[in-house]
Design a protein around this nucleic acid. Sequence first.
DNA 1: CTATACGTGAAAATGATTATCATCTAATAT
DNA 2: ATATTAGATGATAATCATTTTCACGTATAG
Lengths: 138, 138
Amino acid sequence: MIEALRGQNFRLTPQRLEILRILASSREHPSVEQVFEEVRRRFPTTSLATVYRNILKLKELGQVLELGFAEGGNRYDGNRPFPHPHMVCIRCRKIMDPDVENLENLTERIASSTGFKIVNHRLDFFGICPRCQEADSA
Amino acid sequence: MIEALRGQNFRLTPQRLEILRILASSREHPSVEQVFEEVRRRFPTTSLATVYRNILKLKELGQVLELGFAEGGNRYDGNRPFPHPHMVCIRCRKIMDPDVENLENLTERIASSTGFKIVNHRLDFFGICPRCQEADSA
DNA sequence: CTATACGTGAAAATGATTATCATCTAATAT
DNA sequence: ATATTAGATGATAATCATTTTCACGTATAG
């Protein structure tokens, strides 16, 4: 991911590198607040604005995907390939990636039936994850 | 839709009835602001808070679906059946409903492979609608 | 018709995100 | 190694969507 950022007028500050590292290594689809807390563990003076700024850059460069929900508070996804479906637990708010399905023919079918030129899609399933189901029955 | 609301302590004020009418009849997946402006045409003193309050009620009653996007500003969907896919035009921001596909087996496949108990899903395609494609080539 | 609980309008409060600005520093040239 | 400078940071204010507050209004049950 770092390689993808070289070339433009892009400085590799410690905070930036740490934010990159967190987003690239997390499978948790973290919120800004979560990234902020984790950056702070290593660089305690980091500002929340810095986290937002860097995530914005990564968004623009296509390195992370922003996941908006009606409830507010975006989540960020650095796991490739894009796009892929998400499993959202409505109890613990965790977001997981299921095994990737082949959705290309679905996209093509809808494109041809609607006349849209489709450039992206998003597929989210909402439900209760296995762990929260256990907690329910316990 | 009105029938679905009777029974509970629900008063049928003029503003409320107008908001219901707008959401039930619109195919445009309007924003709060758009509903607000339309209500105002008939009831010019209506407050924005009233629009939010009534949409919240309808959400809770399952009569409208709230569509959140990363860009902010929710859109509202009163078109059944729920859930159904959406075609989002990234140029004009219109949201359309394509012909409904059969997605049940997709849901079942993902449920069994992840262990999730799925209660809902959301499938959005982002692209350029036919009208905006024409505008491009013109 | 009266009473009461729910609804409304206006404005303040909240929460997430973005912009501002003075200061700092990574990258580049000297 | 040093100076230069454009980009980055931290702190804070501003913005935008949404929710809450509260005094007043009114639909509905009795």
